[in-house]
Amino acid sequence: MCNRAERGDTQKVLNLFGAKKGARSNEGPLPIHPARPGTVIRLDNGERVLEQMTWGFPLTQKSKRTGKPLKPKPVNNARFDKLHTYFWKWAASKPEHRCLIPTARYCEACGESGCMTETWLSVKDQPIFAWAGLWANSDEWGSVFTGVMTDNAPELHHVHDRSPVIIDPADWDFWLTAPLEELYRFDRPYPADRLAVEHTTTPWFQRKAVAGPGQAHLL
């Protein structure tokens, strides 16, 4: 499942999607991570708007020890074959809760446990592509979104067995407006020969500098 990506440059996204800035359109960093800001394209009164939302639907669980609610976890990916289930269907079945996630590239962890590195994937002929998504308003984090996932092409199973649902430009409006039962044609691997794969030596897990009182330390 994808939990690291890079959004498209704001002005390029606005031009590409023929969108305007929505009410929630603050700039954020290009890298996006779960429970942090990202951007989506959605329809508002028939117009495409670009808005900033938090990546991941909040899932609140209770402590097995105390029974008290725990800090919500971001559910940042929705499996296509699970869109009919209770957790997702209420949003997936309503076109007004669908969105497109403008993405320059996304990342997967590759390698053996303990020494995984970043592998980045992008669409060769689309510097910014549309990743199918769902969005909602939440009590915990305000407006949130999740990316829909499907099976990966067999040639790319060494990277991951699943991948984002990539919607080509001719189908953008269809994703945003069609009934849920007509969307299942997108539940198929995206052609591997249309994707660029960049293996890197960058560790997947990196120590982060954390500011302390008058100093910084590493976790």
Rank of each mutant, 00 (worst) to 15 (best):
A5S: 13
R24E: 12
P31C: 06
A35I: 06
A35G: 03
A35T: 10
I41V: 10
I41T: 03
L43C: 05
L43G: 03
D44E: 15
G46M: 06
G56L: 05
G56R: 04
S63C: 07
K64E: 14
R65D: 15
G67V: 11
K71M: 08
K71V: 12
A78H: 02
R79K: 14
R79S: 09
K82R: 12
H84C: 00
T85G: 00
T85I: 03
Y86H: 15
W88G: 06
W88P: 11
K89H: 10
W90D: 13
A91R: 14
S93G: 05
H97A: 01
R98G: 05
R98D: 01
I101N: 00
C107R: 11
G114C: 06
L121V: 15
L121W: 06
D125L: 08
D125K: 15
Q126P: 02
P127K: 02
E140T: 12
E140W: 13
W141N: 04
W141S: 06
G142D: 02
S143I: 02
V144L: 02
G147R: 05
N152Y: 07
N152F: 06
L156N: 10
V159Q: 02
P169Y: 09
W175G: 03
E181W: 01
E182H: 12
L183K: 10
L183V: 07
D187T: 12
P189M: 00
A192R: 03
A192N: 08
T201D: 15
F205K: 15
L219F: 09
